[in-house]
């Protein structure tokens, strides 16, 4: 068995060899513009879904996770799994900001020979820890990573982001039960609670559901970087045993552009020239 890595893990949460690029509301507006450019020029993608989670992902990489863009599979890294893979434009924008992805790779988004598709691909994208797209896979896959890290006596953390609609999938709750029973204190699941589920099959009280499965639950404004960081940091500082952590992040689908917000026709729509201009004006 390998040497326990806790001692060598970066205790003050600085990424190995990197200067942090913090997540702030102003900076995240820039990420939103990047997302719009990606989807518009690539002619595909889910802008409102990405806007719903971009503040969360930017904060994780900006304030919380340990990573090394020069060595994306660095053994001391923390793991971030975007289970709701259709929001990947937000992940790509953040990975680009932190140096995992080049400008040329971003420009080839959705290109036949590009590495950035409509869902993240672990075999192609530096920094992507799982190939997702079909909902309900990311959390059980993350559960395996979290268990494996404990088997190997390592102290890396695992953070998974799922959608509230994705929480219809049975595997989410199967995994919730298993993670609690295995005492995976090194696993955190963030729920992008933007009301998608409520359009179809509402969760009466999603925080209570996670609590009922034995998880530690926090609720947070999913568009407030400081609040997100504060919610995640206790998990990062805790040991690897005990209850896993669920963070219900209250978000707005399409957050940042007034006419994209909520659950209208923009889910998978590509802006035309006029719409592009209007979006960019709101994101100034």
């Amino acid at each position: 068995m390998e040497q326990p890595a806790c001692a060598s893990a970066d205790s003050d949460n600085k990424p190995t060899g990197m200067t942090r690029l913090p997540s702030t509301p102003i900076i995240n507006q820039d990420l939103r513009r990047r997302i719009v450019d990606l989807v518009t020029h690539g002619k595909g993608g889910h802008i409102p879904s990405a806007f719903s989670i971009v503040d969360i992902i930017a904060t994780l990489y900006g304030q919380v996770l340990r990573f090394n863009p020069e060595r994306p599979r660095d053994e001391n890294r923390d793991y971030f799994i975007l289970s709701k893979g259709h929001g990947c434009a937000a992940l790509y924008a953040v990975l680009h900001r932190h140096g995992f992805l080049s400008g040329a790779q971003m420009e080839n988004y959705l290109g036949f020979d590009g590495i950035l598709g409509g869902h993240p691909d672990r075999t192609k994208v530096p920094g992507a820890e799982a190939s997702t797209g079909s909902l309900g896979h990311g959390l059980p896959f993350s559960l395996g990573i979290a268990l494996g890290l404990k088997v190997r006596k390592r102290c890396n953390k695992v953070v998974t982001l799922v959608g509230d609609g994705e929480c219809h999938e049975g595997t989410v709750w199967e995994s919730a039960l298993v993670a609690q029973n295995l005492g995976l204190g090194n696993l955190c699941c963030i729920v992008d609670y933007n009301g998608s589920a409520a359009q179809i099959l509402p969760h009466p009280d999603i925080a209570a559901q996670w609590r009922a499965f034995g998880w530690q639950v926090r609720e947070v404004d999913g568009h407030d970087p400081a609040a997100i960081a504060d919610a995640v940091k206790p998990f990062m500082a805790a040991g690897n045993d005990g209850a896993p952590t669920a963070i219900v992040a209250h978000t707005v689908k399409g957050r940042g552009v007034s006419f994209m917000e909520s659950h209208g026709p923009w889910h998978h729509r590509i802006p035309n020239l006029e719409e592009y201009a209007a979006i960019m004006k709101e994101l100034e």
């Binding site: 672990r122 820890e129 799982a130 309900g136 896979h137 059980p140 896959f141 993350s142 559960l143 395996g144 990573i145 979290a146 268990l147 494996g148 890290l149 088997v151 190997r152 049975g170 595997t171 199967e174 995994s175 039960l177 298993v178 029973n181 295995l182």
Partner: peptide, 26 residues
């Protein structure tokens, strides 16, 4: 010890979980 898991009656999750474990080289 620590390497046998009777996970439960939730086969799809066991498969995904196994893949996550295997992604670490186990």
């Amino acid at each position: 010890p620590g390497r046998f898991y009777n996970v439960g009656i939730l086969e799809p999750t066991i498969v995904s979980m196994s893949a996550g474990l295997a992604s670490l080289g186990l």
